[in-house]
Design a binder for these strands. Structure first.
Lengths: 249, 249
DNA sequence: CGCGCACGTTGACATGGATCAAAGGGGCAA
DNA sequence: TTGCCCCTTTGATCCATGTCAACGTGCGCG
């Protein structure tokens, strides 16, 4: 299934992101800015970068100097322990920001990997700070985005700390559904970009457990799933699952 | 339990936090500011608030308008699910900030509870934003603090997602040790301010499991523990524990 | 100063999810 | 188009941690 927005002939080196033309206003940074302000932002958001599936946008330990807005595509971020254990810390889609973790130490603290061919806007961080000293709306929006990330992380902590396997998967599917909806896609039908193992890592489960939970949801008529293609048959059913089950074992 | 804000002889309304005199420079917001800049900050950090043990600094759902710097004391933050399940999202000590989660929706998204008698500085958020538009250093430091919170949360996700019970507790103790050290206290000996149940909630474990892990660490000579008093006998021993164990079940 | 109760410890048992194993299925490359 | 490899599914078994229960213990209030 093609998910390409742009499959273009344009020479990339000099391409401007053109926030002014971008249809991600509501999702990305600019929100309620004047025309003049958006033009300033255009100058800051200097260029785009394309990544093929499997390619790293950045790696843990690399110097940080920019955050990235996803123009199209799908990413995962993960943290690795010395002994090789991986924790997927999030999946990011169109309009979301990547790299906020790097501000803290001026080095990236996780890896960001494209799960499909993707395109991002590079936003040099010092420029963004400069501009957000000039434009209050932008400053406030940026703070909200960072705070939203913290709140999101708390939700994941809740999920990992208190929920059982099936609740976790239900929460995961409902979250994806909601984010696809916000982007104008179907709330009920989508293709997963990540493997069962990556879902498992994100949810603190083994891939077999994820697979079994998918099968069980299917048996119960909550979803129809075939490989990476998921169709949610009962959103209320999934929601109900989360309220009625007790803490995990 | 009374939920009073003020229980002191001092007239609080006019008390200044006096960042200029505060010994938390390195931990809290001001860092490398000029004298004049710190005076501006003094004006923003309008007043202090005292809380007794058990008192809420704020609750999920309340309107957000300020963040708080802990001047002294110890807090927990937690999120509650409708069915009563609790996830402790963090423990905060002197010099750390509370309330960053509220920026996102302009409502607090978690509860903050004092685990001992505590004192905080109230920092009205819009004022802080105003000042950070004027003072680049302050702006940058604030962004780092928010980013650090995101990185911290990723660490907790790693802990909850991939570690076994004893690894989690070891990581928890080492983290406390390091933070006490940074505040000039002993790295090896401290009193826990929270119950086994709260530790368990934070670590995604039941209180019995936490208690057993403490006992086992003691048997192995890694710590000496009696109720809330903990003495770490071998920091390397605890660190080693985290590297050599395999993923959880 | 002493009592009561919340907190902590420990034991026995239950179980959810991990682990180990093996057999499809589908997408991508040649 | 075909073949290979990665991904997924499913089954059998095991084990870490949850659950239930009973007993200690020490702090705080009166």
């Amino acid at each position: 299934m093609p998910n390409r927005k742009i499959a273009t002939p344009i020479t990339l080196t000099e391409v401007k992101s053109a926030c002014s033309n971008c249809n991600l206003h509501e999702l990305c940074l600019p929100l309620g800015l004047s025309h003049a302000e958006i033009e300033k932002l255009d100058e800051v958001v200097a260029n785009r970068r394309r990544l093929k599936r499997g390619e790293h946008l950045y790696r843990a330990g690399e110097p940080f100097d920019a955050i990235y807005a996803i123009r199209s595509g799908f990413f995962k971020t993960d943290v690795l322990l010395e002994d090789g254990r991986e924790q997927v810390t999030g999946f990011q889609m169109t309009g979301e920001l990547l790299g906020l973790d790097g501000i803290s130490t001026e080095h990236h603290s996780c890896n960001a990997v494209a799960l499909e061919d993707s395109e991002v806007c590079t936003i040099p961080f010092l420029h963004l700070e400069g501009l957000s000293r000039e434009i209050q709306t932008l400053q406030h929006h940026f703070h909200k985005v960072m705070s939203r990330e913290i709140v999101r992380d708390h939700g994941v902590m809740m999920l990992l700390g208190t929920m059982r396997a099936e609740e976790r998967l239900a929460a995961f599917l409902l979250n994806l559904s909601q984010r696809f909806t916000a982007r104008g896609y179907s709330p009920a039908e989508f293709y997963l970009r990540m493997t069962r193992e990556e879902i498992g890592s994100y949810l603190g489960l083994k891939l077999e457990t994820v697979s079994r939970a998918f099968s069980r949801f299917q048996e119960e008529g909550l979803i129809a799933v075939q490989q990476k293609h998921v169709r949610i048959l009962s959103i209320p059913g999934l929601k109900q699952l989360m309220n009625h089950q007790q803490g995990r074992g």
